[in-house]
């Protein structure tokens, strides 16, 4: 179940104003790792804005997800420099390695795979990010080793996943 009191805290911190809707949703997304329906409803109620206004913001911006996402979010950079240096190949290699397509999450909720328009490290192209880590100057042969670093080692690790 979603703990809506956390949403109230977040809204209180930013102030109950419509201007702060993006900041509030970004923080909710960090807190819950995605935006469940209950959270969006709660935000709408807290800042006294129609549900559809909140929902339209939540669906317009790429940063928000209405579906659960994986513990490790893998983003392959598709900036121009990465694109001509093999970014699409990295994405294909990751799709094979994780056995999911772009925009999907693995069934064990460990990995989500998506693209990002540019992480601004074009000097290191091609680049991918996993969580806050940036991996640059990659070749597709390195993909299995990188993914392995983030895979849970034992079943006991899996329990720490919320």
């Amino acid at each position: 179940m979603v703990d809506v009191s956390k949403v109230q805290d977040i809204v209180q911190r930013h102030g109950c104003r419509r201007e702060h809707i993006i900041a509030i949703l970004l923080e909710c997304q960090d807190e819950f790792s995605y935006l469940p329906r209950e959270v969006i409803e709660e935000v709408a109620a807290e800042i006294d804005t129609p549900l559809n206004s909140v929902l339209s913001v939540a669906t317009f911006f790429r940063a928000f997800s209405l579906k659960p996402v994986g513990k490790h979010q893998v983003h392959v950079c598709m900036g121009t420099a990465c694109n001509i240096s093999g970014g699409p190949r990295l994405l294909e290699a990751l799709e094979r390695e994780l056995k999911i397509k772009r925009g999907e999450t693995t069934p064990d909720l460990q990995f989500s795979l998506d693209t990002v328009n540019c992480v601004g490290c074009c000097g290191l192209a091609p680049v991918l990010t996993i969580g806050q880590d940036v991996h640059g100057k990659l070749k597709q042969s390195q993909i299995p080793r990188i993914v392995k670093k983030y895979r849970p080692k034992e079943a006991s690790d899996a329990q720490t996943v919320h």
Binding site: R17, R18, E19, H20, I21, I22, L25, L26, S53, V57, F60, F61, R62, A63, F64, V116, N117
Partner: peptide, 19 residues
Amino acid sequence: AGAFVCGESTALMASLEGK
């Protein structure tokens, strides 16, 4: 929150207003 069009001035201002 990750929308290229928000670099455009009027879109950016709409976004500043929480729209």
